Every structure is written in structure tokens, then in C-alpha cells.
Simulated scan of single mutants.
Amino acid sequence: MLTRLVIEDAVRHALMEDAPTGDITAATTIPADETATAVLSARENGVFSGADVFAAAFHEVDPGIQVTMRIKDGERFTAGDTLATIHGNARGMLTAERVALNFTQRMSGIATMTRAFVDAVDAAPGSHARIADTRKTVPGLRPFDKYAVVCGGGRNHRYGLSDAVMVKDNHIAAMQAAGLDLTAGIKHIRDQVGHTTHIEVEVDRLDQIPAVLEGGADTIMLDNFSLEDTRKGVAMIAGRAIVEASGTMTLERVPQVASTGVDVISVGALTHSVRSIDLGLDWA
């Protein structure tokens, strides 16, 4: 989903927000024809994401600015590493600097946090679970947030409401109010959608699982289950549906959840509670 057009549109809007009538400081302190060289450097360890977005910010201001990336998306870096070199018109570089950093620091923060979760799950005994994101993204930045998750080794959940059926507690309450029990409600959904449409159902109690299985759900999400109930849920489902665990996932807890045998662990914190990575752009 993170296409060139999406990147250019977002960068253009960000620059319009930051410098709607130009950069007063750069225009009044730096000669129009002055050139400069700067380096993007890491001030802490992390996983990189956002190379194309970083370059696009400079090119949108001045197509003549040269951006040479020294790292690829998804690669790890350590504090002190040089990640990119930028050369060109000094005014343009300064105008684009903040927008370029804002995107790249956030995206690298998401990639770094995701990698930590993936590493924690991969090290858990008996785990085959994947780490996935959620729709808890910054409005307008979903393509960037979800791309950064992939850079960190995670997987994308549905992109939006149009991608798959996901029946949550309020949907269940609405179906029951309409006189449909859980099994009948899922079958009713199946009758209305195409054969390729994935159906996921969220449950918050073990006793809901048999009805969801009978309805033919493709994925069953165990929401805020204890570790003991998660194990029981996996055993009850017994491979008849994909098992997803969700709710209050932390780095300390995910290895234990992964060891219960779930297939997917969705982590909202990857995008809603991320800390941007400290990257610096310094004149060389």
C-alpha cells in the first residue's frame, strides 16, 4: 500500500503544513545558491524504515538534492552509524529536514519495536506465532505505519474495514438484538460475502468457541484471555481455524502467549504507543 503516489502525497501535505509560504529562517540566513552536505546518523540502536519517504521529502523541495542511502529498510543499525548522505541546495535541505526526520524516526521506531516483539516470540519454546499489527494507526499514516511493521519482521492484519469480515463484541450484540445467535450470524455473513472473503470472530469467553466453530469462522481471536484459557482455547479449536491472541500484549508477556500454540499475536502497541527512534541530520 505504500506506493510512490502515497508517499509523494503525504510528503507534500506535510511540507505544506510545515512551510506553507516557505522557510523564513533559511531564506533570510543562507544565500540562495549555497550548497551543503549533511549526514543522517543514528543516535541509538534500531531497525531502519522509511528510505523512500526520507528521500522524497528532499526531492519534493528541490529535485536536485542528492540523497544516498547507506542502509536498506529492515536492516539493523547501531548508534553512531551513518545511514544516509544528503548533498545539494542548503536552503532546500533545511526546509525538508524536519519532515524527512519525522517520517523516518517514527517508521524506524515502529520497525524497531516490531523486531523486538518478533525476536521475543521466535525465542519462545514451541512457538510458531506471527506478530501482527492492528488498525490502531495515526489517521492518514496507516500505509507508513503498516509498512514499518513489515520492515521490523511483523505481518499486517487487515488494512481496513473493507478487507475482511471481523466480528467483534458490538457486532455480536447487534446480531443478537436482531434475533441471530452466534452460529446463525456467522452463517448469515458467509451467505452474503464472496468465497474468498476471510471471516474472523472475536471471542472473550471459552464457551463462545463452539458456536463460532460451527458457524465456520476462518480465524478466532481470543481477546484478553488468560494464559490458561488461551491454552484451552487452542485445544478446543484444534486446528479448525486460525487462532489469534490479542489484548494487553507486552514484550514480557508475548513469549508466554506464543508458547500456548496460537498462530497470530496482534499487538496494537506497535503503532499506537511507539517511541520515535533518535536520528540526527548533521552538517558534514
Results as ranks from 00 to 15, higher is better:
Ala258Gln: 00
Ala84Leu: 11
Val165Gly: 00
Thr35Gly: 12
Val149Cys: 08
Ala36Ser: 15
Arg158Met: 03
Ala258Glu: 04
Lys146Cys: 02
Ala79Asp: 12
Gln66Phe: 11
His272Pro: 13
Leu213Asp: 04
Arg76Gln: 14
Arg240Val: 01
Ser276Tyr: 02
Asp218Cys: 07
Thr219Ile: 14
Thr260Lys: 02
Glu44Val: 06
Thr250Gln: 07
Asp73Ser: 10
Thr21Ala: 14
Arg190Thr: 00
Asp23His: 02
Pro31Val: 00
Ile237Gly: 01
Ala184Val: 05
Pro63Trp: 10
Arg142Ser: 09
Ile220Val: 13
Asn102Ser: 07
Ala79Gly: 07
Glu200His: 06
Leu40Lys: 06
Gly22Cys: 05
Ser127His: 02
Val234Leu: 11
Ala26Ser: 15
Glu8Arg: 15
Ile265Cys: 09
Leu227Tyr: 05
Ala100Gln: 08
Leu83Phe: 12
Glu252Ile: 00
Glu228Asn: 07
Ala14Pro: 04
Val257Met: 15
Phe225Pro: 04
Asp229Glu: 14
Thr137Arg: 08
Glu214Trp: 01
Ala238Cys: 05
Gly64Met: 12
Arg12Val: 01
Ile220Cys: 08
Gly22Leu: 08
Ile242Glu: 12
Ala148Asp: 09
Asp133Pro: 05
Val264Phe: 13
Asp23Ser: 05
Ala90Leu: 15
Arg231Gln: 09
Gly268Ser: 13
Val267Met: 07
Val47Trp: 06
Phe77Arg: 01
Gly179Asn: 06
Gln105Glu: 14
Ser49Asp: 11
Gly74Ser: 05
Val6Met: 14
Val138Pro: 12
Val67Asn: 13
Val267Asn: 02
Met166Leu: 15
Ile237Pro: 02
His195Thr: 04
Gly74Arg: 05
Asp282Glu: 15
Gly153Ala: 10
Ser226Gly: 10
Asp81Ala: 13
Gly152Asn: 08
Phe77Cys: 07
Leu141Ser: 08
Ile265Arg: 03
Gly185Phe: 05
Ser259Pro: 08
Arg4Trp: 14
Asp263His: 13
Val167Gln: 03
Ala164Cys: 13
Ile265Ser: 04
Asp223Thr: 00
Asn170Leu: 11
Thr230Asp: 06
Lys232Glu: 13
Gln256Arg: 08
Ala124Lys: 00
Ile131Arg: 02
Leu94Lys: 05
Ala164His: 05
Asp145Thr: 00
